[in-house]
Nucleic acid binder design. Structure first.
Lengths: 258, 258
DNA sequence: AACGACGTTTCAAATAATGAAACACTTTTT
DNA sequence: AAAAAGTGTTTCATTATTTGAAACGTCGTT
């Protein structure tokens, strides 16, 4: 039987509590939230701080994620394998399409944002590299579901949580199923203000040279800038980007990074 | 007396062994290199793998850094505070200057690469965001030393390791001192193939609105593309960028991130 | 001055980490 | 084919560390 190190597990469990929505924690606060003893939490936090993994704000005595994680995060191989290869393509697509461009992969039934290039226009999206988005109400997610092998797709959909984000969010599995079929025949997916009101996205699949689905590439912009009759143009630019990525990554497989 | 958690310290010590130059480790290899027991290393690596912090390559059974670190690294506040603010400026500078642009801060007596935007030209630099470079043979490092308060600067220089990288590397403290004085009067620093043959860099300081030194901004390119008489132009574009950053970050202080 | 909230330290009791050796397996050498 | 040498993995008694209730010191509030 494999015996894991509990302290290490606890440490990373604590780190996972430092999210964008809750970026700082006090000792007692975190102890209460995790149901652990104050002393335990205190010592773990102090340890992580001594390593630069956390940082203690001198004013408030609260903890935040530290530069050590920034450092380690940028050392991850992914950078050299996927992002490093695809980033220039994303820049090109963003320039051509004049909107914010994202690259996402499927990871534990969610869309994991691998890279983005922001629109030259001023609009800021709340998306962040390294974060997760739901699959059922994003164009990236729909692509990543639709082009999955049939059995895997079925399993994913059956376990899905179709939470509602806007009035446009698809909340019924039957409806999602039929839309995914359309996505597969069209080879592109749309998100019409289904995650956030005012935000429209278009995405296309990215395959490797063995025609395995690797990622999805999307353009996102404000609904009022979206021109319905330019959809074909958007899709064209994105598909051009997807092809460029395909030729760059060759036989790269998700198995090599996940 | 503060008691730290040994397991957590060991875990992060292991992670630090996964560098760009040595990105994968086997159990025995890492045990020997750290002087620890095989079993201990095995269990720690297995634990980190179960958390997604490490990834085990299915072919070779060797370990690499995993996506969890990518995720945590991008969650670090720094992104929202410094990089997030300055990245657009770097893009602008890179476009104007047609060379690769770096932003670096001083961290444990080394240059810590906070962000970069690659040249539109094809040349690839080996630099990576999140990595460290020496201070005495980079333009960024010279700036970060030169504009330090006098006492801090003295202390930094006295502890410095002036390793030689090329025949141009400054290896004598006296020489470095005088060059730093020049840097301070000129308000820019040069690296003439002192770290890597064929690579020339120019850097300028970045201050916040309290005139505290925050970072250094540099342009790097191949020596044969460097036009001596265009130096003033390079410096001008960089200083324009530094001013743009200053007005964006306001009273941002390094104390808030380090 | 008393209170409450915070991070921090203490120390015996409870638990988890340790390491030498054995195991299972693959690859290389004989 | 067999032996040797390499790998990751598991075992289990010994050892060392993590744990948690309570007490402490410090801050701002009542």
């Amino acid at each position: 039987m494999r015996a894991l190190n509990h302290s290490v597990i606890k440490a990373f469990d604590l780190l996972d509590h430092f999210t964008q929505h809750h970026p700082t924690w006090g000792v007692r606060e975190l102890a209460q939230h995790t149901g652990q003893n104050k002393s335990t939490i205190y010592r773990l936090l102090a340890t992580l701080e001594s390593l630069g993994v956390l940082r203690k704000e001198t004013q408030t005595d609260r903890y935040t994620l530290g530069l050590k994680l920034f450092e380690l995060g940028h050392r991850v191989q992914l950078q050299q394998s996927l992002v490093h290869q695809t980033h220039p393509v994303l820049q090109q697509v963003a320039a051509n399409i004049s909107e914010t461009v994202h690259l996402g992969v499927l990871r534990s039934a969610k869309v994991f944002m691998v890279d983005k290039v922001e629109s030259p226009m001023g609009l800021k999206l709340s998306s962040t590299v390294g974060s997760y988005s739901p699959v059922h109400c994003t164009s990236l997610g729909k692509i990543l579901l639709a082009f999955q092998p049939a059995d895997r797709r079925k399993q994913l959909i059956s376990d899905l949580d179709l939470s509602s984000y806007t009035t446009n969010t698809i909340t019924r599995k039957r409806l999602l199923q039929t839309q995914l079929n359309e996505v597969r025949t069209q080879s592109y997916a749309l998100d019409r203000e289904e995650l956030e009101l005012g935000l429209i996205c278009v995405a296309v699949p990215v395959f490797n040279q063995q025609r395995e689905l690797i990622a999805a590439l999307s353009a996102a912009g404000p609904a009022n800038r979206f021109r319905e009759n330019a959809l074909g143009e958007y899709v064209g630019i994105l598909q051009q980007g997807a092809t460029a990525i395909q030729s760059r990554i060759g036989s790269f497989s998700l198995k090599t990074i996940m």
